[in-house]
Amino acid sequence: MRFFILLALACCCIESKAVVMRHDISVERYHVEKMPDYIIDLPHEGHGALIAKQWIVTVAHTIFYDYTGAILNIGSQEYQVEKVYIHPNYLKPRKEILSGDMMPLMQVLKSSSDIALIKISKPVSNVIPISLYSKSDEKGKILTVFGKGATGNGLIGENLDTKALHQPNRFQNVVESANGKWLSFKFDSPHNALPLEGMQGSGDSGGASIIYQNGIPYLAGLSSWQFATGDMSTFKGGLYGTTAYQTRISNYYNWIKGVVGS
């Protein structure tokens, strides 16, 4: 549990379920009535996205224990987890780097492959899976990111006490870098920001980042972590200027297809 909390704080939101907003925009503008049906709540915390009738993709650090046999609510029905496939290059940070200077943790996070696939025991019948974004042209495109955990704003950062409210929200940001394993974006202050500019927060891990093309949603990223420097005890997530990192779906497209196809 300590590992999970520190990871969620030390990264752009190493755990997907929260939205940090502009301080000058009404919070109601970020609210959504309900999350898209293809976004799935995981057993402990965080999200995944339904990408095929029996498959959910998420970030590996949301797999806190053996989820085999766990029940997931998808649409209006319950489904049982059959098996979890964690990417072989996922690195779980050692306990000794979860305190003190944050740079060793940042190095581990950046070199890790933070992605996992969850197979459920029977095909989903009442929800349409989201398609994967397989192109490598994400830079400069607008992401729409969903979450329902801790909230806050860019002046004061995220408020962890709000995480239990589970208010569905969404924000937008522009892909600043699309390189190798990661998509990244910066939480700009209002004079450089999108109307619904935002940042993922604690509880957002595995949250879906969507690129819309002709009104059709494509899964481009999964909320993973947030870059930070200094001592971990003084870290405050979700401030203006913070850079977020998202697992880049296009980089893992062949791995996903290889596992799902098997």
Rank of each mutant, 00 (worst) to 15 (best):
residue 125 S to D: 07
residue 49 A to E: 09
residue 126 N to R: 13
residue 54 Q to F: 04
residue 47 H to A: 13
residue 16 S to Y: 08
residue 80 Q to P: 01
residue 112 S to H: 01
residue 17 K to I: 08
residue 18 A to P: 06
residue 32 V to C: 02
residue 16 S to E: 11
residue 17 K to N: 14
residue 127 V to G: 10
residue 96 E to W: 11
residue 127 V to D: 06
residue 126 N to W: 01
residue 42 L to V: 01
residue 46 G to S: 01
residue 83 K to R: 15
residue 96 E to C: 03
residue 68 T to C: 08
residue 57 V to W: 13
residue 115 I to T: 02
residue 43 P to G: 01
residue 115 I to R: 11
residue 133 Y to M: 02
residue 81 V to T: 08
residue 30 Y to M: 02
residue 12 C to S: 12
residue 86 I to N: 12
residue 63 I to V: 06
residue 14 I to W: 11
residue 93 P to W: 05
residue 79 Y to W: 06
residue 69 G to L: 04
residue 68 T to N: 14
residue 19 V to K: 08
residue 80 Q to R: 15
residue 65 Y to S: 15
residue 95 K to G: 07
residue 118 I to G: 00
residue 20 V to F: 11
residue 90 Y to R: 04
residue 91 L to S: 03
residue 47 H to G: 09
residue 92 K to V: 00
residue 115 I to D: 02
residue 55 W to A: 02
residue 84 V to S: 03
residue 67 Y to H: 01
residue 59 V to P: 09
residue 42 L to N: 00
residue 33 E to K: 11
residue 42 L to I: 04
residue 95 K to S: 15
residue 110 K to D: 07
residue 101 D to M: 12
residue 55 W to Q: 06
residue 21 M to Y: 14
residue 20 V to I: 15
residue 125 S to C: 05
residue 68 T to K: 12
residue 130 I to S: 03
residue 89 N to G: 00
residue 88 P to F: 00
residue 73 N to P: 00
residue 132 L to R: 15
residue 129 P to M: 08
residue 23 H to R: 14
residue 45 E to M: 09
residue 78 E to S: 11
residue 134 S to H: 14
residue 66 D to H: 11
residue 124 V to T: 05
residue 13 C to P: 01
residue 49 A to D: 14
residue 111 S to K: 14
residue 79 Y to F: 07
residue 49 A to Y: 10
residue 77 Q to N: 13
residue 126 N to A: 09
residue 22 R to M: 02
